[in-house]
Amino acid sequence: MAELYSKARTKWACRRGMLELDILLEPFVDEAYDQLSEQDKLVFQRLLEVEDPDLFAWFMGHEACPYPELDAMVKFVLDRVRA
């Protein structure tokens, strides 16, 4: 199960088709991923499965994420990256 969310695979999955998402996701993995709980790592992995246009809309505040766990992770990522 550890391979499911290895940091290297996760960082690779953060390379998206949109530079704006790369700028948010890659630093988060570098700076905060190791401190996430096992459950939060799984939630972050689920977030990375979402299509780029949806992620962009959620991270930029254009749309609300309809999934509470993913919405909480979006907010957590934004808080960590802005800090």
Rank of each mutant, 00 (worst) to 15 (best):
R80D: 14
F44A: 10
R9F: 12
D40G: 11
R46S: 11
A13R: 13
D52R: 08
P68K: 11
A72N: 11
D52V: 09
A72G: 06
L55F: 03
L21K: 01
R80W: 10
D54R: 09
L55Q: 07
V77W: 00
L24K: 06
A83T: 14
Y5N: 08
P53C: 01
P68I: 14
D22K: 14
L55M: 14
L70G: 00
L21I: 02
R82E: 15
I23A: 07
G17E: 05
E3L: 01
L47D: 11
D54W: 13
E49G: 02
D22I: 13
L55S: 08
G61S: 06
M18F: 02
Q39F: 07
E69L: 15
L4H: 07
M60E: 11
F76I: 06
M60G: 07
K7A: 02
W58P: 00
L36G: 11
A64I: 06
M73A: 04
S37H: 15
E69K: 12
C14G: 02
D40A: 14
L25E: 15
A72M: 14
A32N: 06
Q39W: 10
M60W: 02
R9I: 10
D30F: 13
L48I: 04
W12G: 14
R9C: 11
E3Y: 02
D54Q: 12
V81N: 11
E31R: 15
E3M: 06
A13E: 10
A72V: 09
T10G: 01
E49Y: 04
F59A: 03
L78E: 10
M1E: 06
K11A: 07
D34W: 14
K41A: 03
S37K: 04
L4K: 09
A57K: 08
P27G: 14
Q39S: 12
F28S: 09
D54N: 03
D22R: 09
A2I: 07
V43Q: 11
Y33M: 12
R46E: 08
I23T: 06
A32M: 05
L47W: 13
F76T: 12
A57Y: 04
V50S: 02
L78A: 09
L36W: 15
L78C: 13
W58M: 00
A2E: 13
R80M: 05
D54Y: 11
A83Y: 12
L47A: 13
M1Q: 09
